[in-house]
Amino acid sequence: MLVLNAVDIQKVYTMKDAIEADKQALRMYTQGLTEVPLRINFDAKKGQNLFMPAYIKELDVSGIKIVSVFPDNPKIGKNSVPAQVLLLDPETGEVCALIDGTYLTQLRTGAVQGAGTDLLARKDAANAVLIGSGGQAASQLEAMLTVRPLKKVAIFDIDLERAKTFASNMSTKFAKFGVNIYASTNLDEDIAQADIITSVTTSKAATFKGELVKKGAHVNGVGSYTPEMHEIPESVVKRAAIRVLDTKDGVFAEAGDIIDPINHGLVSKADFFELGDLVIDPKKCRQSDEQVTLFKTVGSAVLDVVVGYDIYLKAKKMGIGTEI
């Protein structure tokens, strides 16, 4: 069995790799070439344990992500949301890889937004806004920078000092992109100028004003994943000319951003594509520079297994990781 930590993954895998793998993962999902049972959730004494399996028929590979949510872990110097991804060898059925699931989740979640942005945002997009500077924010920023030659990215957080610290750190980390990354002190102004808006929060209310979104903008909803959470304004969902989801089953069951507008009669389930539909048929992507487009993701074990297996194959080829 090959054990891969975050440093190992970074040696063999790029954001660009992950974006392409996510596109293919969701293409296979839409084509019915995967099996994704419902997530299993156990309440433990000190937290929750979640088990997310998937089988990828096209690759003949199975895997499972095990995620725990233990809020008190930081008190003992541990991550509050530890995760691991296990893969099974297609030839023998044995566990062939144990991969850092925390880093893998950040990578594939940033990458799926990158996939949506790549397929839907204007090619000449120059200005972006990233709302939220938590644990997922760095990969979200990297994904936007990977697929579009952005000139400015405004970082907004309810904690301005945290936004400033994040912007400063990311300016150093992503200096190679030559982009101006700064903390937003006027979100309305930055939204009005934005070609790409990415919200990655667990907010129960819209994180920006939908009426400020300009023609041609692309909006990503990444953070909310329960019916109570609602970070994307309903007006944006209604206005969008193209509405795309990572998986219909997941979003229609979990994302308040989309569930509420449907329940309020603003849109119907028939008004949405899956991202896999766009990979299969690029004609379903943006057709004009005037269209407002929307991508919403809640995640799927399909992404973990496909990206994880791709990482595993590259690591094996390059001799990276620890065999046990």
Rank of each mutant, 00 (worst) to 15 (best):
F156G: 06
M1N: 01
A194I: 04
R243H: 05
K215Y: 12
G210I: 11
S80M: 04
S68V: 03
D22R: 04
T117K: 04
L187D: 03
V95T: 11
F51R: 10
D100W: 02
K173F: 04
T293N: 09
A205D: 11
F252G: 14
Y309M: 05
S203E: 07
I155H: 07
T34M: 12
V298D: 00
R239G: 06
L266P: 11
N79V: 13
T109I: 07
L87F: 14
K283F: 07
R286E: 00
K57H: 10
F70V: 13
L38P: 01
I19Q: 05
N41I: 08
S168W: 02
K204T: 13
A54F: 02
K215R: 10
V129I: 15
D195S: 00
G256T: 03
A21Y: 00
N73G: 07
E189F: 11
A301L: 09
H264T: 05
G93C: 06
T207Q: 05
D17L: 01
F272G: 01
G250W: 00
A253C: 01
K23A: 09
T247S: 13
T226E: 08
D159F: 08
K11R: 15
L145G: 15
V179L: 09
F70A: 05
V307K: 00
G210C: 11
V307L: 05
I155S: 13
G210M: 10
E189L: 10
N180G: 07
F252W: 02
Q287P: 00
V244K: 04
A217H: 15
T226F: 12
F166D: 09
I242V: 12
N5Y: 01
K151V: 00
G101R: 06
A241P: 09
E234W: 01
D124M: 10
L86E: 00
G256A: 09
N186K: 05
E58P: 08
F174P: 08
S203P: 10
T105G: 15
G256H: 15
D246S: 00
A137K: 02
G216N: 09
Q10R: 14
A167Y: 08
D188Q: 14
K57G: 07
V292T: 13
V3W: 04
A206Y: 08
T293V: 11
V219C: 05
E231R: 08
L145V: 15
